[in-house]
Simulated scan of single mutants.
Amino acid sequence: MKGSKWIGVGAFLTFCIVSVMFLTLLGQDLFKIESASEKASSAYQYHFVLVPEELDNEYWQLVQKGAADAAAAHRVYLEYLGPKQADIDDHLKTIDMAIAGHVDGIMTQGLDAKKYKPLFQKAREKGIDVVTVDTDAEGSKRQVYVGTDNYYSGFIAGQALIADTKGEQYVGIVTGRLDAVHQKQRVKGFRDAVAAEKRIHIAGIEESAITKSGASGAAYKLLNDHANLTAFYGTSALDGVGIIQATSQYQSTTDIYVLAFDTLPDTIQALDDGEIDAVVVQHPYEMGYQAVESLVRLQKGEKEEPLQYTGTSVIRREDLPLQQTDRRQGMQP
């Protein structure tokens, strides 16, 4: 019994010693975290979040690169958070999380003005600045829009088709999302541009869901449904490459004209190879950079122009040497 008693006392003492050591170590870890937090707060002036439509999308990665470069220049702690695949509900949840985190500023798309208005209102009520990028949310509490004039980009795409083709044209439109505001504007601008040209007809429109495979499937469906198709217009970044995947597999004697959007590497390569005829150029790097700078100025209490359009143009194969020079300078995607 005596031995058992001393064994029990020894076990209790061991437990106490281990507990004290654990609490000491825990206290050290907490101290390190607190110190790291203090260090971070002294290293950065502001905390901004960029919420893309889709994290791994090459286009949005270019926006993020521009934002990151501007953030580094202005002592901004920048987070890049959003859905892995385009999903409006996940997109809204991420913005709501950023608001709950009491960040200083949010950059995001306004894909559906009605759904985004309450969130932007909530952010502003908490003193968080909001800048929409690439797609605006008109009538909301966002302070600034930085990005393409999407209607104009669609209009010059239509003008390019008119200039580059002759005779009757039957056009299939592949669009990223049928319900997205910026995609609708690009389609409307295109339709308005070709409306007076009696030789050009819109054969049909299909959704790509912002993926190459989706664009390929949409293009193939249009080819099957409209045997007389002579041209394609893709309104989102991955549509062009998806379209040529479909046209290369489809048995057709017609030389199909392809008009794409955005200068991602695969799209530019296809333009250089003659598989794509023209590309509408946006400036995602500039959008990201300018959006951060706008948020910084808003944080300082400066007045900002609410509509800040970045440049838009159409390039053909002969324009590639200049375009490639611009890309090496990091100002083009």
Rank of each mutant, 00 (worst) to 15 (best):
Q323V: 15
H283P: 00
D112I: 09
A231K: 00
V146M: 05
Y233K: 00
C16Q: 04
V103Q: 08
L55T: 11
L161M: 12
I33Q: 08
A196Q: 13
Q185G: 05
Y46C: 06
A163K: 15
A193N: 10
E54I: 04
H74G: 04
Y80I: 03
T108C: 14
G27P: 06
Y250Q: 00
A123S: 09
A100Y: 14
D112C: 01
Y46M: 04
F190K: 00
E304C: 05
E197W: 04
I162M: 13
K114M: 09
Q185L: 11
G8C: 07
E58T: 03
L62S: 14
L271H: 14
F120D: 15
L25T: 13
I202L: 11
I99T: 11
D273I: 01
L264C: 00
E79H: 06
G274L: 02
Y46T: 10
E197P: 00
D319F: 09
A68M: 07
T165D: 10
Q329E: 13
A270G: 09
Q109P: 05
F261C: 05
E138D: 14
Y44Q: 06
K212I: 06
V63D: 14
T247K: 02
K212V: 12
K198V: 12
F232L: 02
V279P: 07
I33L: 10
K39Q: 10
E305G: 03
Q121H: 11
K65L: 07
A137N: 10
A123F: 04
E79F: 03
F22S: 13
L271I: 10
A70I: 05
W60S: 07
V280Y: 09
K5S: 12
